[in-house]
Design a protein around this nucleic acid. Sequence first.
DNA 1: TGTTAGCACTCTCTCTGGATGAGTGCTAAT
DNA 2: ATTAGCACTCATCCAGAGAGAGTGCTAACA
Lengths: 346, 346
Amino acid sequence: MADQLTERSQNILEAIVEDYIASAEPVGSRAISRRHSFNLSPASVRNVMADLEDMGLLCSPHTSAGRIPTEKGFQYYIDTLLHVRDLNSNEKQNLRKSYRFQGMKMEDVMQEVGRVLSGLSKYTGLVMAPKFSSTVFRQIEFVRLSQGRVLVIYVSETGLVQNKVIEADRSLTAQQLEKISNYLNAELTGLSIQEVRTKLNQELQEERILYDQMKQQALKLSCAALQDEVENQVYVSGASLMLEQPEFSTPEQMRRLIKTLESKKLLVDLLDRSQLAQGVQIFIGSDSSHIDLEGCSLITSNFSNKKGAIGSLGVIGPVRMDYSQVIPIVDFTAQLVSRVLEREIE
Amino acid sequence: MADQLTERSQNILEAIVEDYIASAEPVGSRAISRRHSFNLSPASVRNVMADLEDMGLLCSPHTSAGRIPTEKGFQYYIDTLLHVRDLNSNEKQNLRKSYRFQGMKMEDVMQEVGRVLSGLSKYTGLVMAPKFSSTVFRQIEFVRLSQGRVLVIYVSETGLVQNKVIEADRSLTAQQLEKISNYLNAELTGLSIQEVRTKLNQELQEERILYDQMKQQALKLSCAALQDEVENQVYVSGASLMLEQPEFSTPEQMRRLIKTLESKKLLVDLLDRSQLAQGVQIFIGSDSSHIDLEGCSLITSNFSNKKGAIGSLGVIGPVRMDYSQVIPIVDFTAQLVSRVLEREIE
DNA sequence: TGTTAGCACTCTCTCTGGATGAGTGCTAAT
DNA sequence: ATTAGCACTCATCCAGAGAGAGTGCTAACA
């Protein structure tokens, strides 16, 4: 349906979208005919505008206001009119310098990425850390605490750590724990955490007729430590920047936005969805299938290392976002983070 | 200065504060004389009100509105008039049931505490996790990752874990790492992490004339893992609830509030301050020495275990907060968390 | 046939002024 | 010491007028 637009219509649509992105206000025919040198009178522009409105690409808040792009209009703009320029090496260098990951733990890296993303884009930054279950097992350690409590520590190939305190049989000695961990380290090496989980469960099933008390203990402990993990940690940075945007200027809008950003559930959904595809993805407004993010767009990309730990990051802004500026930032940041993660294992 | 108030003045002040807490609107003399059975005419109430205003306990937004308590007024109310009722055992039981800490990692516990605190109080919950450096050393572990990178894991008595990937000399073998960890575990046992840090640094100094290559490596590794730690992790929950409060109903107020809650810096300051004292503490409005929290009050308490890991939690709400309800919640929650932490080590 | 000038029309936004009502401060009476 | 009475102040609400921006339509034009 898209390319039925004449060149003139496209030019005008582009002009309207861009003016609207810059001003956040309805764009009138006069303004278009003056600011852009189409050599067309306002009246002609109006005719085209009426057509675009019929197609559902524009709409007007009321009779005597200008036009604003609909979500469909933005969609079209992004699909066919937007030219995303690459960052030049200077900008890339600057971006690289913004991030200081030196000697940071994974969590801190994620938080830092969110902060910078938000700072550069002037919108809200989102980062979803790699799920632990999608990483590759490297080592398990047990630390005896007091009163039969045992701290179980899983380490992934990438150096991610997951730990949990488990109530264990008091009779377990340090020697036994060491034996257990040796056994498991041999047994589980090379599996993904997901596989580790199923394998442990299987063996626990088989061993049900507890021939080997200790082995059973071992499996139980290790299993418990992988239970009910809060996966999908999402970091949200710069929510307050969104409140500066005119589309969130009324108390009601502010409340709703903050509530949505705070609950994080929806964000996890979207970032999860984004992981299904590759490269930069854009979700526009209620296209994202949830009213709570009405008026928002989301630009995401994924990062990963060669061992499969996958996370995603992005920027959430008003639909009227400066896509040409934010897209390259998100894109390059994702690459940057990937490279950092890879450097950490390889 | 405080107790120069006659009983009648006190009663009226109390009535005003409580009506204001309930309604968020200026309280008039007529309302007071009717709602509360003082058997005083509005005119008499007005006289008292005028006195209270002179003392700086009340103020009126404009001539023909009622009075609202000043911060000083709230302070007085809290210091002398407020009766904090204890929770009855039923309520305590309910509170206990709200929290499900079963098998949670410290981080998750903290987050959960914040959420519940916010949910119960209808204001914003704050939790500052115990600083790792104030905990007691239990064990150190090294995990060799690829390319000479080593994951250093510190475990505290309480089962808290701190870990970091460190770039190490490639020649380090697994055996050597094990030897190192044995050495350190013997050496450092019983020290607080703070002490561990200084001790490592001292030894590193002494050993400078590197007699013992390996020992030096050991110290360097262990030291590096304790460097630049982001302490003072603060969890903020339910910020959006504050936006429901009438005192944050204008866009400008909302923006400022969210910005402050987001930056967390100020919150860390306040929670740090709260750790200097014991029991429930209350910071009122700009008393908290920063304009950014104008209009807010903070109710905090500390939690700890016997081994000294100390954190604090609290609720941040409008100055016009329902103190009599929130204080016991904060108080009891702090006790609850302490008990949970203690159970984990003892 | 596409383009444009002109014009009536619509709708929002802002400003104004008056009415309303809540609440005060003061004074004089009890 | 308390209270009734009264004049006064000020925010809030509402209606109406005027301005301004922008549209749609029609008729003229190249």
